[in-house]
């Protein structure tokens, strides 16, 4: 039974044990990225001006000399940075929760068809020339509707509700993607069609101050709901039957996790369109740092996800003369990154 020498034991997960205990150290990164992203942009703001303007905004607004700077900061840049941080954190938490629930490390938050539903909803609103707030509402509703339909298949495969959910997701995704094609086909090729195409690539350009509560409220509620279920998520990853015998009401946990992840993904996608890969890659990165225990994995996923998305968004805003759609960048940066993580894991094993 002695397969493990002392050295071997020491080497296994020395890094993991560090992060399991001291993961709050990682909170430095979002704070750093926040200020870094803040100062960059088409209207560059030095750190000194930044601190002074923020200070005066709250203490004595009449003393502000550069009103433009105040507008840029408080109406455009702060909301955008905050929304990016929240979306990144939410999508990553949703991804890691789903990977445990479906017992499959290759699952992403849109496995139940949220993104397909949201895209269809947004496209519908776009061809009707609706304002941006209405597009967001349609996307949100479409996402929720798709997941609701996908969960209706639970009874289709008896005694394996998880497999039934996966199948439901595939079917509903196909259905809504077909719907999206119909809308695109009918769309006016001069205006609506390009608008739909750009929406699908994803961007945070349209984020304004009043979007903050619209993202923050559902996301924060869902994140708390996921964190409360952390121990049950651990148990559920051992399979439905085993989890039941360990005292977990798997049906309730599934429902709560699906509701939380759907709220997160639908409200994210409705604000910024499709931002792929983050919900798949970040949980892997987090797991390689902390191990699979959700008590630590959920907060660390949130921290890393928010940093990654903010990094991508900042590059999108600043790298080129025209703003790059963020969906392109998360894929371009995420996939090579994913390959590197996997190669490292393979070489260790």
């Amino acid at each position: 039974m002695e397969n493990f020498s002392r050295n071997h034991l020491k080497l296994i997960g020395i890094r993991q044990r560090f992060f399991v205990r001291y993961w709050p150290v990682l909170l430095i990164f979002p704070v750093f990225f926040f200020f870094w992203s803040f100062s960059l942009g088409r209207y560059p703001i030095g750190y000194q001006d930044l601190v002074r303007t923020v200070y005066l905004h709250y203490s004595d607004p009449s003393k502000i000399i550069d009103l433009n700077m105040e507008t840029v900061l408080f109406n455009i840049r702060i909301p955008r940075v905050l929304v990016v941080l929240m979306v990144g954190a939410g999508m990553s938490m949703a991804g890691s929760a789903y990977q445990g629930m479906f017992r499959n490390p290759l699952v992403s938050p849109d496995i139940l068809g949220v993104t397909a539903g949201a895209s269809f909803g947004a496209a519908l609103a776009i061809i009707q020339k609706q304002p941006i707030s209405r597009i967001q509402l349609f996307a949100f509703a479409g996402g929720i509707l798709a997941v609701y339909c996908a969960t209706r298949f639970e009874r289709m495969i008896r005694y394996d509700p998880v497999l039934a959910l996966v199948l439901g997701g595939i079917l509903i995704k196909g259905l809504f993607n077909a719907g999206l094609s119909v809308v695109k086909y009918l769309a006016d090729p001069e205006q609506s069609l390009p608008a739909i195409t750009f929406w699908l690539m994803g961007t945070f350009t349209d984020v304004v101050k009043k979007n903050i509560p619209q993202v923050a409220i559902p996301l924060i509620i869902s994140m708390i709901l996921l964190y409360i279920n952390r121990q049950r998520l651990n148990v559920v990853s051992f399979g439905d039957e085993e989890a039941k015998t360990m005292g977990v009401r798997t049906k309730h946990v599934r429902l709560e996790v699906i509701i939380a992840c759907t709220l997160i993904t639908a409200s994210s996608v409705s604000i910024c369109g499709q931002v792929g890969w983050i919900g798949l890659i970040i949980p892997h990165l987090a797991r390689s740092l902390t191990g699979p225990n959700y008590r630590v994995l959920l907060p660390v996923s949130a921290i890393l996800g928010s940093c990654f998305l903010l990094l991508c968004d900042t590059v999108c805003r600043n790298a080129f003369a025209v703003e790059l759609p963020i969906g392109i960048l998360t894929s371009l940066m995420g996939i090579p990154f994913f390959i590197i993580i996997f190669k490292q894991k393979a070489s260790k094993a």
Binding site: R103, S237, F238, M246, V248, R287
Partner: peptide, 27 residues
């Protein structure tokens, strides 16, 4: 009884299997 009440009477040990994630023994 519901699941968590029943779990205080009966515990289950399944056939050997591999979980998808590398939890530590103490977890």
């Amino acid at each position: 009884l519901n699941e968590s009440q029943r779990a205080k009477y009966l515990a289950y040990i399944p056939q050997a299997h591999r979980p998808p994630f590398p939890f530590t023994v103490s977890d």
